[in-house]
Amino acid sequence: MQRPDWAPETIDIERPSVARMYDYYLGGSHNFAADRAAARAMVEAVPEAPLMAQANRAFLRRAVHYLAEAGVRQFLDIGSGIPTVGNVHEIAQRIDPESRVVYVDVDPVAVAHSQEILAGNERAVVVQEDLRRPEAILRHPDVTRLLDFSEPVAVMIVAVLHFVPDSDRPEEILRTLRAALTPGSHLVLSQASDDGRDDTGERAEAERVYRRTDSQLFIRGRAELTALFDGFELVDPGVVWVPQWRPDAPDQAENAERAVFMGGVGRLGA
């Protein structure tokens, strides 16, 4: 599965990219015709798709806010996608300009776009790597330059793990990352879930849509997600539908399961 380092990823804008589809769901225009066509097909299959993306993005915003308030000043956002509005560094650096953020994405276009956005920001950087190669991420020179792993780091794996099949051993990926962290570090995790939902065939349809893209979809339930927090202490309210995670207002958590994403935040104890 691993490419030799001398064979660069091809840039094929005719092929839908999950990063750019996500941008489209969020109302952005950082996408191409192929991305929009795939995203519209997804909306037909799962009408809540844009809502899912927005709810998940809002979860990310609230989680970063929470962590920054809790004193975390370092963020490693893996699977960051197209950095549109409400980026981690925007939120974190507004609370403390010294906050340092490393974005990681496998999509070369997303990385190039991030580079443009981050130009001139000395405390935020993007690296092109694959979530499935956590060792490579941890020893990447930009990661080791910007992040001090003897201090707490928030590892964010938001809306990306559903593109990683069980055969790629997500629990081992997380174990590798956790081993690099010091107590006080956090894990922010969310992914597509069907926990408790009636099977309306949407799952199969959604997976079918994503087969056309550069990534396949692997949906996981609450128990599986909770297990991935192994070694971390889950922050209240645990693994929930993302709108239910510390909402700004109680009414925002209504019909939360329609958001399709479940997520949570875990803290690494001493």
């Binding site: 380092d5 001398w6 064979a7 660069p8 990823e9 091809t10 840039i11 804008i13 750019r20 952005g28 225009s29 950082h30 996408n31 191409f32 197209i82 070369p108 276009v109 997303a110 990385v111 190039a112 776009h113 580079q115 443009e116």
Partner: peptide, 29 residues
């Protein structure tokens, strides 16, 4: 305007990524 700006920025990013990939390919060759 915002749409045009975003379209321009994503196209520029795609071009950069492609140029980068080609450079990487040439370098590796």
């Amino acid at each position: 305007d915002r749409t045009l700006d975003e379209q321009e920025s994503i196209r520029r990013a795609a071009m950069m990524a492609r140029a980068h990939a080609e450079r990487a390919l040439r370098d590796s060759e």
